[in-house]
């Protein structure tokens, strides 16, 4: 049980990071990035390819992260332009459908070109006991990286001017514009950041289980569930939801079974929308 909870927290932090990117992009531009997981897998596969090409693992990861961030940046500057020109419901619908199309393009491309490629980073060493539970080294490094990333993200949003600028655009785009913030540039930055975070999650996942070319849809679904349960647009909500769902996930797949667990997570997302659309931290609407 203790092991399951610890594993769940590790998994949950990764879920949180995955959800944060999706939630931020939606909060800023109204674009539900259904290609979020595909960007993560794209970065992971680029990492694996660079590693195979002879790069040491750390630079290879850096290449993958940079590519995922660049992909986000380029997307925002090209495909998302016509979306941002629209307002209200048409914007949301067009953004959703374009990203769905893009998800298929990335998925299809990866399965076509690199059908058996996968990223799995093996970290040796004996299990290390934490709170009486023996944790694998890979899993510990993954959690350390995830915690560091999450902490710097929170610090960025709380402490820096740029982070406050991002939050102000989420709250009130017009108001932010009046204060001299350029929402378009904030959006571009956040899109790139979300690509980076997605890839980081894929890389840390690969330290415990291989990430294959077909994993994109799973990552997208998880990000969507986490972002919805946390409340679309809420960073702290996404982290909290991630941890809660991570613990629920490990405990229930351990004691009940995997397929019920998947259904439980999906139902959690659906129920959140129906009962409390603003998420677990949001107020009642």
């Amino acid at each position: 049980m203790k092991a399951a909870i610890l594993d769940g927290i590790v998994l949950g932090l990764q879920y949180g990071l995955l959800g944060v990117g999706l939630t931020l992009v939606y909060g800023l531009g109204g674009v539900l990035n259904l290609a979020h997981g595909q960007l993560a897998v794209l970065g992971a596969i680029i990492t694996a390819l660079s590693f195979d090409a002879g790069l040491p693992i750390v630079p290879a990861i850096a290449v993958g992260l940079a590519c995922a961030a660049t992909a986000g940046l380029v997307l925002d500057l090209t495909l998302m332009r016509p979306v941002y020109r629209l307002r209200g419901e048409p914007r949301v619908l067009l953004g959703l459908l374009l990203m769905l199309g893009l998800a298929f393009i990335i998925d299809g491309f990866l399965v076509w070109r690199y059908p058996i490629q996968s990223l799995s980073i093996r970290i040796g060493g004996d299990p290390i006991p934490i709170l009486g539970v023996r944790m694998r080294t890979g899993s510990l490094i993954a959690s350390a990286v995830t915690i560091a990333a999450g902490a710097s993200l929170v610090a960025f949003f709380r402490l820096t001017t740029a982070g406050r600028a991002v939050r102000s655009v989420i709250q009130d785009e017009e108001g932010a514009r009046l204060c001299g913030i350029n929402p378009a540039r904030v959006r571009t930055f956040i899109f790139a950041l979300s690509g980076f975070l997605a890839c980081l999650v894929a890389v840390t996942r690969s330290m415990t289980a291989p990430v294959t070319v077909t994993n994109g849809i799973d990552f997208t679904t998880l990000a969507l569930i986490v972002a919805v349960v946390g409340g679309l647009g809420s960073v702290s909500g996404a982290f909290l939801a991630g941890i809660v769902l991570g613990i629920v996930n490990t405990i229930s797949s351990f004691y009940i079974g995997t397929y019920i667990t998947t259904i439980m997570l999906l139902v959690a997302a659906a129920l959140t929308i129906v009962i409390r659309p603003s998420g677990i931290l949001g107020g009642r609407t």
Binding site: E89, L93, L96, T262, A270, I273
Partner: peptide
């Protein structure tokens, strides 16, 4: 009745879709 907009309708029905898929496999 919950006046969900297009995106939330999409997510709820997608969640239903994927749950059904898991149920079929399970």
């Amino acid at each position: 009745s919950r006046s969900l907009d297009v995106i939330f309708t999409g997510i709820v029905t997608l969640a239903f879709s994927l749950s059904f898929q898991s149920l079929i496999l399970g």
